[in-house]
Nucleic acid binder design. Structure first.
Lengths: 195, 195
DNA sequence: GTCTATAGCCCGATAGAC
DNA sequence: GTCTATCGGGCTATAGAC
């Protein structure tokens, strides 16, 4: 009987896809340094040589899979901006952002991962800050980004009680007032205590 | 002339202190995996053998310096609890918590560091949740911890615009209303949008 | 084209010289 | 007590066998 009816090119593409999926999973679980080409190859049921042949280096393989999705443009009234940023967080806690988690897990120990996360956050931050004509816009939008990152880390990477399993709507409901007060609240806040 | 008038024990203690300071700095800057005993020894102006002699292993040296300060007990009315948690964040952004940063930078790639950070956060979270007789107390206090961690990461490890250089009081002022609304706000929030 | 073998490097840890 | 030399092992990346 004839051999597999799968064209060589198709076979090759499938192997590459298996490698990419294995890399995404292992980099997200163990970070850049502790993920080895050997382990990726084993998980993808190939061998290390082929991984190198297809992706050139461990560094380039990582760059292929560790991407942080860029935000959609943010604009409108302060109320709308706050809701858009909250919706952005809502997406992240609704579907596990596997590729971004690979970048986030490695960002403290791998400069390329840090750059990827930092630049994605700064782009969103600066764009949002552009809609706010207040002197502390950078701080306000930086805080929103930091809170969003903290929530993602707490939910997926630390698995904190309550946060790990909470329904997305419950998380966004509890954070709605925070996002609004940070984006367009009085700096001294209605809740400021003089005590 | 006589040699150094420094007793042996004193000399030894000084060397150990130099090693600990160098380890704290390098682990905080580069994380566990990328910090080598060789580099610590060089930074402390000794040699690797002596580092191993004094601290037994890289793992034990790391455990000595990567500690997260435990919180003070939290109690009182919901308003007071929110203010105490906010004050806790205020301390962290007032003085750079070097030892905690070493643990945080390594928490995603080194299990012992993850345990240290996680347990410190869970202890504070559970203690705070104990003061709140609501079903979603875990989620509320988990969010507070996540926001606090995100703020520390954004300020010291990512150096986000606005957050990196902001005066501590400005940060806590912007977060005050958030902490109050998360700790004791209506779950559906006064700002809930039905759109 | 696919895979095996290995070169070359750096590491943590140890043994023993001084 | 302090330091040097080295062991054993894991890694990325490469060279070459099939």
């Amino acid at each position: 009987m004839p051999a597999a009816p799968v064209p060589r090119a198709e076979q090759r593409r499938r192997t590459q896809d298996r490698i990419l999926a294995a890399a995404r999973k292992l980099f997200a679980e163990n970070g850049y340094d502790r993920t080895t080409i050997r382990a990726v190859a084993a998980a993808a049921k190939t061998d290390p040589g082929l991984v190198m042949r297809y992706f050139e280096s461990k560094e380039k393989l990582f760059a292929r899979i560790a991407v942080v999705d860029r935000h959609e443009p943010v604009d409108g009234t302060p109320e709308q901006v706050a809701e858009l940023l909250l919706a952005s967080l809502g997406e992240k806690v609704t579907a596990e952002p596997a590729a971004a988690l690979a970048a986030i897990r490695s960002m403290f120990t791998h400069p390329e991962a840090a750059k990827e996360v930092r630049e994605a956050m700064l782009a969103e931050q600066r764009q949002a800050a552009g809609t706010m004509p207040v002197p502390d816009a950078d701080l306000r939008t930086g805080l929103i980004g930091a809170l969003t990152l903290g929530t993602v880390i707490g939910r997926y990477l630390l698995g904190l009680d309550g946060l790990r399993d909470a329904p997305p709507e419950q998380i966004t409901a509890l954070l709605r007032e925070s996002f609004h007060s940070i984006v367009h609240g009085d700096p001294d806040g209605p809740s400021a205590r003089s005590e």
